[in-house]
């Protein structure tokens, strides 16, 4: 019962959504929009569940003084600080429980949540992702020394696209005559993006689409049930 009833619900809602495509009249179209609204609300709770899980994990590490517990404490404090500031005084145009924080805004220049977002979250996020530039360079080097046809294709395309999309590409092959303009780096990059790249992306989309259709059908029919977890 504990696992068969949820499967029945999944089947019912899945079939209703499918039927709504073929019967675009009341009540099916209303049921689908209602289900989509519910989906968003439940997703909100699902994200809350994830955050609770994060707090529990961090708290466990701090209480039991596991490795690097001090850093997890810093993470938990920053989480609590950002959450409290956001709930009390809101974000951007949205007021919080305590209103718009006009007094604090006059002192800080913006809402406390936005201040923290702009001066801590954004720099951290941008720097973390910019750090990947160095690791990508190292990965490129490793791919280059493999020296297979496939890895060479990958690297040559990457180099053409990078050069073709920057001003150096225009400078390097700008002197080519009219009848050789195809080999001008920006034109070559455009050609790669428009044809071979589109072909491969289409192949991926079609194949993934077929996979998603198959998986969805398995879920609706109750064949795929791993999302319910174990029999606890």
């Amino acid at each position: 019962m504990k696992s068969s009833a949820p499967l029945f619900f999944a089947f019912i809602v899945g079939v209703i959504v499918l039927l709504s495509e073929f019967i675009p009249h009341s009540p099916f179209n209303q049921i689908v929009s209602t289900l989509e609204g519910w989906f968003m609300i439940i997703s909100g709770f699902a994200i809350l569940l994830g955050q609770i899980s994060l707090i529990r994990m961090n708290t466990h590490k701090i209480v039991h003084k596991l490795d690097n517990w001090q850093y997890h404490l810093a993470g938990l404090i920053s989480f609590g600080l950002m959450l409290v500031l956001g709930l009390l005084w809101g974000m951007q145009e949205t007021p919080g429980i305590m209103g718009d924080a006009a007094g604090i805004q006059a002192w800080l220049g913006q809402k406390p949540f936005d201040y923290l977002f702009e001066n801590a979250y954004l720099p951290l996020s941008a720097t973390l992702f910019s750090l990947l530039a160095f690791f990508i360079a190292s990965a490129a080097y490793r791919a280059f020394i493999i020296r297979g046809l496939e890895s060479n294709l990958l690297m040559i395309t990457a180099i053409i696209v990078i050069i073709g999309r920057t001003s150096i590409g225009t400078m390097l092959t700008g002197w080519l005559p009219e009848n050789l303009q195809f080999w001008h780096f920006p034109n070559l990059a455009d050609f790669i993006m428009e044809f071979p790249n589109t072909a491969a992306q289409r192949a991926i989309l079609i194949s993934a689409g077929l996979g998603i259709v198959g998986s969805s059908l398995r879920i609706i029919l109750g064949i795929e049930r791993s999302y319910l977890g174990g029999d606890k």
Binding site: F9, V13, V17, L18, E21, F39, F45, V213, I219, Y227
Partner: peptide, 23 residues
């Protein structure tokens, strides 16, 4: 499991139609 089943069922129905059309 109940809310998960409803979410997964809705997503499966929507995805099946959407990906069939667009992808």
């Amino acid at each position: 499991r109940y809310p998960i089943a409803i979410m997964v069922g809705t997503t499966a129905g929507i995805s099946m139609l959407r990906y069939m059309k667009s992808d």
